[in-house]
Write a protein that binds this DNA or RNA. Sequence first.
DNA 1: GGGCTTGTTACTGT
DNA 2: TACAGTAACAAGCC
Length: 243
Amino acid sequence: MPEGPSLLLLKEDIDALHLIGKKVLRIDGTNKIEADRLIGQQLKAVKTYGKNFLLCFKDFTLRVHLMMFGTYLINAEKSTKLQLSLQFEDAKINFYTTSLKIIEEDPDDLFDWSSDIMSDQWNAAAALKKLKAQPDAIIADLLLDQQIFTGSGNIIKNEALFRAGIHPLSKVASIPDKKLKELIKAVRDFSFDFLNWRRDKVLKRHLEVYEQKNKKHPHIIKEYLGKGKRGTYIWPEKQHLYV
DNA sequence: GGGCTTGTTACTGT
DNA sequence: TACAGTAACAAGCC
């Protein structure tokens, strides 16, 4: 569920319920959120920031992060531990396996939407500047850096690197500006393809390297690399290593 | 059924 | 003390 594009689909599902202006009638689940603060509150806005889903109320915002395995169901339940249920007049939203937090600050003050890969305010030039500020990093790590590419995850990392023809272990300082710009554009473009493909439930068949070892092409290899030792797929003939 | 996985944080040790 | 590396957590797919 969790990369940026999937959060937009979550927002689409919630928007379809027309809950703005509606009150929270009841909350349930194993969360440690203060129920008293939420009950009776009118939903003011629903936003996403990268992988964060934001339910905005008058004086605070509930931040829902779906982590690796987070899921949600609308007007439906499943057997795994219910973490947070928000009952509105005509609809109930159930969240499972999430990280929840009440944010006191105004989200517009707290979050910089120009780094959000899905946002209208996305600023490619700012991303380039942030990449170049870490010349010794390997590019694969920076594609997961939420300060630079807010909302990017491991699938986007792999596919964007493939599209730009850059090997994941390339050192940032060694990659020509032209290629960095190409990569930044690939992140943005792939993320919207991801959004549309996932909406149509056809994402997997369009992936070119991610989980494609021994599938799309026999030369694709898999390595665990970078800070988080995340699974990384490489088609060596097509991805140049800049060192 | 063991080994993966779209993620992040809190520890640990150096 | 700062940083890098590891463990922990979760549910579902194959």
